[in-house]
Design a protein around this nucleic acid. Structure first.
Length: 388
DNA sequence: TCTGGGGTCCTTCCGCCA
DNA sequence: TCTGTGGCGGAAGGACCC
């Protein structure tokens, strides 16, 4: 605790989001595609083909047939209405001439490590939020609380700018950063000036900058909650903030209602978590064509065994044992069902996982055609912490 | 021509047990 | 012994996120 005479320090949390990350990494490798509509996604086929004259031939969305979705699109492709998550066949209707590149996660993970290391040189308190974004606690980084001229946020702004410079120097890539008193606001702020932007927001600026935004900008309000809020006549974050807490609880339940009320008013005290233990590990695959349990028994059996082996491999590589083994399947009508089973002893053995998953499989309807099969291990424990 | 893959967290229901 | 209550683990599904 600080003496009462000292100014309490302001909590400064940054959210850093790499701009169109996968697409930007691909542009580093294929600079001739700069400015063009490019979509990343689909399987491992559609690799660029090196021509006899040394140039590369890229496939376009027009050439694609399959069940893949767009993982990322360049800003030029987004102008055609192509978004991540969109089916590639649908994307092809909107932008048939857009270049299609396969995903290369090895490469993205490499650049992910590079940018995170570059950030850590300036500020070590980092929370991983996946391959292309992080939260950073800047509160106690030297300089963060400094006033520059008449700007009380000048110090933290300079720090964020230094982080951006470091990231660009280390990777050649741009990012967008939001700096605010908490994670919830930082996440919203990082999108306010994207791409290649920096936004610093104080609590006093919430009504002016946050409240006019649509409710869906809040991380945690998805399609369902957004539609329900719209139905109740609530379109902006400010309108939710003005709602009676009890009324929100009435409509959304105790937990979510309270969270909505706090979130809309910009309240969030979650810490920046520098380490998180995994809860589950899973592998799943969507088949190129629907498979039938009887007609395609052999093919399904092979895929099933492979998924179990992959989960076992993941567990072993990362040093975990799973006690709850589960399966997931998706029918041709996109209905998804799961079954799981908790074992007396945790395991990372492919055969044990395969056996337990097989028992789960016996408990589902296998009459309908299947489009997806998955295997999961949950209730994880560290392998070295468990006596075998 | 529908809609990937890898996750987390929450809710609900159920059986078991104190 | 009967009934209620509450905690807890397990199971299933759903919302949401990157």
């Amino acid at each position: 605790m600080q003496p009462a005479t000292m100014n309490p320090r302001t909590r400064w949390i940054a959210h850093l989001d790499m701009d169109a990350f996968y697409a930007s990494v691909e542009l580093l490798r294929y600079p001739e595609l700069a400015g063009l509509p490019v979509v990343i996604g689909g399987g491992r086929r559609h690799q660029p083909v090196l021509q006899p004259d040394g140039s590369r031939h890229f496939l376009t969305l027009r050439d694609y047939a399959g069940r893949g979705v767009a993982t990322t699109a360049t800003y030029a492709a987004r102008d055609f209405g192509v978004h991540s998550g969109m089916g590639l066949m649908k994307a092809a209707l909107r932008a048939p001439d857009a270049i299609l590149l396969p995903t290369d996660f090895e490469r993205y993970r490499h650049y992910s490590r590079l940018f995170k290391a570059a950030v850590a040189e300036v500020a070590p308190l980092i929370e991983d939020r996946g391959i292309d974004e992080i939260y950073i606690d800047l509160t106690d980084v030297p300089g963060a609380q400094d006033t520059l001229g008449f700007d009380p946020t000048g110090g933290v702004r300079a720090l964020a700018q230094e982080i951006r410079n470091n990231v660009r120097q280390a990777t050649g890539l741009s990012c967008s950063i939001g700096v605010t008193p908490n994670k919830l606001l930082a996440k919203i702020a990082s999108e306010l000036d994207k791409p290649d932007g920096l936004t610093v927001l104080t609590a006093a600026e919430i009504p002016g900058r946050i409240w006019p935004l649509p409710v869906r900008r809040i991380n945690g309000i998805g399609p369902k909650a957004g539609a329900k809020l719209a139905q109740l006549g609530l379109a902006t974050i400010g309108q939710v903030a003005a709602c009676d807490r009890a009324w929100l609880v009435e409509h959304f339940g105790r937990s979510y209602g309270r969270w909505l009320h706090d979130a809309a008013r910009g309240l969030d005290d979650r810490p920046v978590a520098t380490h998180q233990e995994p809860v589950s590990m899973s592998r799943e695959t969507t088949f190129e064509r629907n498979l039938h349990a009887v007609r395609d028994r052999a093919a399904l059996g092979e895929i099933f065994t492979r998924l179990c082996a992959q989960v076992a491999g993941d567990l072993q590589r990362k040093g975990y044992l799973g006690r709850t083994i589960g399966i997931k399947l998706r029918y041709d009508d996109f209905r998804t069902v799961t079954r799981d089973l908790t074992l007396p002893q945790p395991t990372a053995e492919a055969a044990a996982i395969r056996h337990a998953a097989g028992l789960c499989l016996k408990r589902v309807d296998l009459a309908r055609p299947l489009r997806l099969l998955g295997v999961r291990a949950g209730s994880l424990a560290r392998g070295d912490a468990v006596t075998l």
